[in-house]
Design a protein around this nucleic acid. Structure first.
Lengths: 113, 113
DNA sequence: GTATTATGTAACCATATGGTTACAGGACCA
DNA sequence: TGGTCCTGTAACCATATGGTTACATAATAC
């Protein structure tokens, strides 16, 4: 049984990572998400439940559809864990800083509220 | 079956993350690692095999012991994946930059060669 | 009301996973 | 050589996981 923050287990599966990639940027309905993958709709439904359990997606009911959008907050836990290791590839830390600075200059994408 | 980069599955288990935390900093023997956890030594041996499969640990035979040390390289794959999401908590990007700058100023820990 | 659409849930299945105990093998010591 | 130490592997077990098909439910359309 995998205990600890569920986000680590949630992103272990490649299909779930792909789902996150698919809704990063724009909200999508469950059916729309399912259409992107070669597995059945119920399988996707279960993946979405896991992602919801990890707090990685928000669900919004609209008419007959359920629209899913990204909630990146739990990923900061992964980020925090990686912090302890980032020092080990410190040779490229200045690259990271440059990335950060580039993104700071960029306008906020702003997920729809 | 979990395909894709094995590093994501490797770090999904909390015991394996704890093992990485334990050998981050200093090399440890298999038995020493096992002594840190409430599970049997063979269980740890299997976890170490998974970590080796993901390229996260290096093994060095010394006398009767096997010494394990961290190989952080595969974690950069996780880092790279997170890059696409970091923009979504951009409000705190300047914090990250500060962390980076703090670590750049710090002397290199240098894993023994 | 009834039909239709979109989605979650139940029941089930095969395989993966994480754990155990028992055993095998290589390296040091006498 | 024989014995002890350290560790990996084999065999096995219970449960988790990811998938399926069939059904239930909720909201719109008629």
């Amino acid at each position: 049984m995998v205990t600890g923050p569920p986000v680590f287990a949630a992103i272990a599966d490649p299909t779930r990572r792909a789902i996150l990639d698919a809704i990063r940027g724009r909200e999508r309905s469950a059916g729309e998400i399912a259409s992107l993958f070669p597995v059945s709709r119920p399988a996707i439904s279960k993946h979405l439940r896991v992602l919801r359990g990890a707090g990685l997606v928000r669900e919004r009911r609209v008419a007959r559809s359920r629209l899913y959008s990204l909630d990146p907050a739990p990923l900061r836990e992964v980020e925090r864990w990686l912090d302890h290791y980032r020092v080990f590839w410190a040779a490229r830390l200045h690259d990271l800083k440059r990335v950060v600075e580039r993104q700071e200059r960029r306008p906020q994408p702003g997920r729809n509220p």
